[in-house]
Structure formats: structure tokens, C-alpha cells
């Protein structure tokens, strides 16, 4: 339903998107994962038809965005990075406008409105002007307008931004239900989000797709970036030797503690097995004084690093389409 082939976007002499290709099929939720400034929003805007690709083809529901944008637009629901609300209009007038502009027949507008209003629990604010809405409500009205007109393809740029944990869960549920028989592309920089609702993940950084992988693959990459951090005092050599001999420790880096004299900060890269923290703690206390020990959570940056590391090494077994 969404197809990108060798898409390049340049602004002047600056290339923002370097030759990316991927697709989203019907019944699939694909996550578009990358740090801020990776090119997620630019790519979303090209798929939505807000900006045109410098070269390459973007197709939505079989229509080429360069020549058949109007036809594609009728099949597309789009939530931009910031919800595009008209502050002066109340929620009902706003949603009615979007439904009309999307060509929903007058007789079906009310039914469409009721559906999205109940899906995103907007009942309490239907008569409120948009400028009076809280951030969470603004985001939900933005999501509601994207679902109007029963689109086949849904593009959501950071859909859960600004929502509280309860709303995040509800929104994910709506997206998951919608994804069963539609094509959904969501962009995010939140790692757990994609592993929770997506069937595939496209990882983008610096305007290049690093990999298209399953959430399980992503989880493996995340696990590889596992680490244990500790502060310990005592003899540096003994400490290093003792830690290196721990089963499950792949590598360690030792440097002096920035504040406390005679104390070292140690970073251990570890395998993802249960109990490795305990073994490290025992090894450290056997030769020194242990002040602090902490399991580092995998961050997006570390996951990227693991993909980049992998990439520069041997070829990856994932569907990897990055070209020169």
C-alpha cells in the first residue's frame, strides 16, 4: 500500500534523504524508528504528498504521488508531527471540515464523526474551540481527523507524543485494531513503542535506512547494547582481572571516577543472560569496595550503534536495501 523506491530528497545542495526504499503492505503496521533529525518527518511528508521527492517514486495505494496525488490523498489519513488544528474552530466544526474536504458524503459525515469521537474519547470536548484543548486532547483530535473518511493507509508521525500513559495504551489499541486490515506507518523515537505494535521496523538515521527488521531482531540488537555500570574502589589491576573473568562479560572499560578519588567508574558490556549483574557484583566485592551498580537500559542510540557496527562488519541477514 505504501511503496518507496530509491527516494532522494534534496533541499538546495543538502541531501536530507539518501536513496531509501521500503514498503508497507495491507494488514501491516510498520514502525519508522530513528532519532530526532534522522529524516522521519521528511519521509512522512513525502509519502503524504506535502513535499515532493527530488527523485525516486513514492506510491500510496498504487497511485504515484508525483502525478496522482489527489487520488492517493483520498485513501490516506495523515497525522503530521504537530496536530494540524484550526484553533478558532470547535472540535465538531473542525472534524466536519476535514470529513467534507476528504469527500465523505454529507449523509455519512455524522456517522464518521461519531466513530472517531468515541474511538479517541473526545465526547467531552466536541463543542470546545481547539485552542482551549490540552496537549493530549490536541493530539487525539489530530489522530481522529486522520481516521476520517475510512482511509486505506494511515501515516502517523509520533502518534503518542504528548499523551499520558493511559491514553498511550488506548491509542496503541486503536492503531493495532486499525492495522489489522489497513496499512499503517508510524514514526517514533520510542523504542518500546515499535516492539509493542509493529510487525516490521525500518530503522533510519542520517537520512539512510540502516535496516528493515522485525521487532525481535530489534530486541536482539537492543540486548547487545546491554551493559552494567559500576563504581568501585581498590586496586585497578585486580579489579580489571576479576571482572574480565566473570562469565558473560564481553568487554570492560575502566576510567577514574570524575569526582571521588581512588574510585573507578567501570562500564561492562555484557551478554543478555540473567544474573550477570550478581556475578559482577560478587567479583567486584571480592577484590574491592563496591559503591554503585546499575544495569543500563538499551537506548535508541545504542541500538543504532549496534546496527551500524553490524553493518560495517559482515553483511546482515535482514532485508537491507541501503544503496550507495
Amino acid at each position: 500500500m505504501i511503496e518507496l523506491q530509491n527516494v532522494v530528497k534534496r533541499y538546495g545542495s543538502k541531501t536530507i534523504i539518501h536513496n531509501i526504499s521500503f514498503d508497507v503492505k495491507k494488514g501491516e503496521i510498520v514502525g519508522f524508528l530513528g532519532p530526532n533529525g534522522a529524516g522521519k518527518t521528511t519521509t512522512m511528508r513525502m509519502i503524504a504528498g506535502f513535499t515532493e521527492a527530488t527523485s525516486g517514486t513514492v506510491k500510496v495505494a498504487g497511485f504515484d504521488m508525483a502525478s496522482q496525488r489527489d487520488l492517493a490523498a483520498t485513501r490516506l489519513g495523515y497525522l503530521p508531527e504537530s496536530p494540524p488544528l484550526y484553533d478558532i474552530l470547535d472540535v465538531t466544526s473542525y472534524l466536519t471540515f476535514v470529513a467534507r474536504a476528504k469527500g465523505v458524503p454529507t449523509a455519512r459525515i455524522q456517522q464518521n464523526l461519531d466513530r472517531v469521537i468515541s474511538a479517541f474519547r473526545l465526547e467531552a470536548v466536541t463543542t470546545k474551540e481547539c485552542y482551549k484543548l490540552s496537549k493530549g486532547y490536541r493530539q487525539r483530535v489530530g489522530l481522529a481527523q486522520a481516521l476520517l473518511g475510512e482511509p486505506d493507509v494511515l501515516l502517523l508521525d509520533e502518534p503518542t507524543a504528548g499523551l499520558d500513559p493511559g491514553q498511550i495504551q488506548e491509542t496503541r489499541e486503536v492503531i493495532r485494531n486499525f492495522g489489522r486490515d489497513h496499512a499503517v506507518l508510524i514514526s517514533t523515537h520510542i523504542l518500546p513503542e515499535v516492539t509493542l505494535i509493529c510487525q516490521r521496523v525500518a530503522i533510519i538515521n542520517g537520512g539512510k535506512i540502516l535496516a528493515v527488521d522485525s521487532p525481535e531482531g530489534l530486541q536482539r540488537a537492543a540486548d547487545q547494547s546491554n551493559g552494567v555500570l559500576l563504581d568501585a574502589g581498590g586496586d585497578r589491576q585486580a579489579l580489571e582481572q576479576s571482572l574480565r573473568s566473570v562469565d558473560g562479560v564481553l568487554d570492560i572499560i575502566i576510567h577514574p571516577h570524575p569526582v571521588r578519588a581512588g574510585v573507578f567508574s567501570i562500564e561492562c558490556r555484557v551478554q543478555n543472560d540473567v544474573g550477570v549483574e550478581g556475578r559482577i557484583a560478587r567479583a567486584a566485592t571480592s577484590v574491592s569496595e563496591l559503591y554503585r551498580l546499575e544495569r543500563r537500559q538499551p537506548t535508541l542510540e545504542n541500538v543504532f550503534l549496534s546496527y551500524i557496527d553490524h553493518d560495517s562488519g559482515k553483511s546482515k541477514s535482514v532485508e537491507h536495501k541501503e544503496a550507495a
Binding site: G49, P84, L85, A101
Partner: peptide
């Protein structure tokens, strides 16, 4: 300013 141009230009409206 209100970033609504992004909506307007992606609706099925010429």
C-alpha cells in the same frame, strides 16, 4: 503558523 498547511496540502483538494 498553525502548521495547518500540512493538512490542507495533503487533503484530496487541489
Amino acid at each position: 503558523n498553525a502548521r495547518t498547511m500540512e493538512l490542507l496540502m495533503t487533503l484530496p483538494v487541489k
